[in-house]
Amino acid sequence: MSGKTYPLAGNVRMRVLRASDAERMTDAYRLNRDHLAPWEPERPEEFFTTAGQARVVASKLAQHAEGSEVPFVLLDGDRVAGALTLTGIVRGPFLSAHLGYWVDKEYNGRGIGSAAIAAAVGFSRQELGLHRLQAATLTHNAASQKILKRSGFEEIGLAPRYLRIAGSWQDHILYQRILY
């Protein structure tokens, strides 16, 4: 499962995260710190270090080995152009996961987010056998809402104070895509 590479837009490709990606992830998060801050939880300073990213990557890979997460990295050569993660993978009668992603500020508007979501949808259906993907956006994140809708996700409701983002509990619009 971790060996396949998915071509996206331009030279960007997507593959499962590797332990050797920690330094690249550090560089990407440092470059995009201000860009991502309004959309993500507050991060401790350690998060922006190679040692911190090595711990994050190790945790994600442990969850991947357990079958509860698939962490993808979006790469343009050796540069991280973003990330996409399938988390909270549930088996049994639910067969569902949560999709989250971000794209480097310099790569916005190039179709990379849409291509990554399309690849993740195919992977979720074909490789994981999932029935459903869910995603959530801040109520004011029009760009992500547009990408999700274009990718076949439908709005299913509002979750008040859903996640602690940028230091405060914020409402999110929930989306889903039924895969089969």
Results as ranks from 00 to 15, higher is better:
119 A>F: 12
85 T>K: 13
79 R>K: 11
95 L>E: 09
101 Y>L: 08
106 E>K: 04
122 G>M: 08
84 L>T: 06
80 V>P: 00
121 V>R: 07
118 A>M: 08
78 D>M: 02
83 A>F: 01
108 N>G: 13
100 G>Q: 06
113 G>K: 02
113 G>H: 04
100 G>K: 02
114 S>D: 08
96 S>W: 08
113 G>I: 07
79 R>W: 03
111 G>K: 04
84 L>V: 11
82 G>R: 00
91 R>W: 08
119 A>T: 13
81 A>C: 02
119 A>H: 12
92 G>T: 03
94 F>A: 12
90 V>K: 13
89 I>F: 10
84 L>N: 04
90 V>E: 15
117 I>K: 10
79 R>F: 03
97 A>R: 04
86 L>D: 09
123 F>L: 15
85 T>M: 12
103 V>S: 01
98 H>F: 11
108 N>E: 14
107 Y>W: 06
84 L>F: 13
107 Y>S: 01
102 W>K: 03
111 G>P: 01
80 V>W: 00
102 W>A: 02
97 A>P: 07
103 V>G: 00
91 R>E: 11
85 T>Y: 13
115 A>R: 03
86 L>E: 09
102 W>V: 02
107 Y>L: 02
107 Y>F: 09
88 G>R: 13
119 A>S: 15
100 G>I: 04
117 I>R: 07
117 I>A: 14
93 P>N: 05
102 W>Q: 02
112 I>F: 00
116 A>R: 07
117 I>F: 12
98 H>D: 14
122 G>Q: 15
123 F>C: 15
84 L>W: 11
92 G>F: 06
87 T>S: 14
117 I>D: 11
108 N>Y: 06
120 A>C: 15
106 E>Q: 08
100 G>P: 08
109 G>Y: 09
103 V>C: 01
113 G>L: 07
122 G>P: 14
82 G>L: 01
108 N>P: 03
109 G>Q: 09
107 Y>G: 00
99 L>H: 06
97 A>S: 12
84 L>I: 13
104 D>H: 10
91 R>N: 03
81 A>I: 00
117 I>G: 13
88 G>T: 13
101 Y>K: 04
82 G>E: 00
90 V>I: 15
84 L>D: 03
97 A>F: 08
95 L>S: 08
121 V>H: 12
113 G>P: 11
117 I>H: 12
122 G>T: 14
120 A>I: 15
112 I>E: 00
100 G>T: 10
90 V>Q: 14
114 S>A: 15
122 G>F: 14
78 D>R: 05
95 L>T: 05
106 E>I: 05
86 L>W: 03
83 A>H: 04
111 G>V: 06
109 G>V: 09
98 H>N: 14
120 A>Q: 15
